[in-house]
Amino acid sequence: MRLRRSLEVWKLGIVNYSDALKLQERLVSARKSNKIPDTLLSLQHPPTYTLGKRRTYHNLLVPEADLLTMGAELHYTERGGDITFHGPRQAILYPIISLRNIGFGARKYVENLEQTMIELALQYSVQAHAGKDGQTGVWVGDQKIGAIGVRISSGITSHGLAFNIDPDLNYFKHIVPCGIADKGVTSLRKETGGLLPTDDVIHEQLIGCFVRSFGFCDVSSKDNESILLENGGIG
């Protein structure tokens, strides 16, 4: 008999990157010891650039000091992938899930994250596809609409995906996004050319796509206020 997969969704709103990183670390530790179920963080960040564990500084095209004048931060992470940007009007999912429990390897996990974003784009009649030639993420033609950078520790995932709803794409001009110099970045707003529902609605749709892609059956959710009360803070 196939086990029913349960997922708890935390809807956090806008969270500083360093606080989200501390929260992920805490939840990964709890998930490893089976103190919590599989958990999905749904959030946005203030303007933030992040470098993966390869530390590809050359793909940051401006001095780090200049980022402060733009109102952006730079953070160093232990996720895979290259440099990327996170900001308002971007839907971010950080799954803290056990790959062993759902029988996924790393490649299958990334493919399902890609499928999550492809399905969301299709809901708006945008034909997106997975990267080619080993490139991760989701693309519309040669324009990237969704990025992926993950970490897996003892079979437990962290970090995840970022889907561009309608972020300020000018921020991407200061980096070589994901280390790919000859391709650009796009957004759902740019591809549809029309009005979109609120970010909250699109976040809910993205969560739904994730749930279907990974086969979760029992899904519960918590909002930011209840999470703060239960945990005494996010970070």
Rank of each mutant, 00 (worst) to 15 (best):
D199K: 12
N112I: 10
E204W: 05
G232K: 08
G103T: 06
A65Y: 08
G184S: 05
K11L: 03
S98M: 09
G179I: 02
T198P: 03
H159C: 00
L60P: 03
E204K: 06
G81L: 02
G134Q: 00
S33V: 15
S125K: 12
S220G: 13
S213A: 15
E225W: 06
I96G: 05
N101W: 09
Q127F: 11
P88R: 07
R5W: 09
S18K: 15
Q90E: 09
V140P: 06
F172C: 13
E64R: 11
A121Q: 13
G232V: 09
R54Q: 11
I180A: 06
G233D: 07
N164C: 06
F214R: 03
I227F: 02
L67M: 01
R189N: 06
I175Q: 00
L113S: 03
P197R: 12
I118W: 00
E225R: 01
T157N: 02
P95W: 01
Q24F: 04
V28L: 03
R54S: 13
H159F: 08
H58T: 14
W139A: 01
A65G: 13
G235I: 11
A121K: 13
T186H: 10
F214S: 03
V28D: 07
I227C: 05
R5E: 02
L61N: 01
K11C: 09
L7T: 02
T192D: 09
I96P: 05
T198V: 05
R79C: 01
L60E: 08
P197C: 07
Y76N: 13
R151G: 15
Q90P: 09
G87R: 03
P46D: 04
I36M: 04
L3F: 03
L43M: 13
I148N: 05
D182K: 13
N101R: 12
H58L: 13
E73W: 03
C217M: 12
A181H: 07
W10A: 02
D223I: 08
Y171G: 05
Y171C: 00
K222Y: 00
S158T: 10
A106P: 01
R107G: 04
D218N: 11
S29C: 14
L67N: 08
V126W: 10
H174L: 07
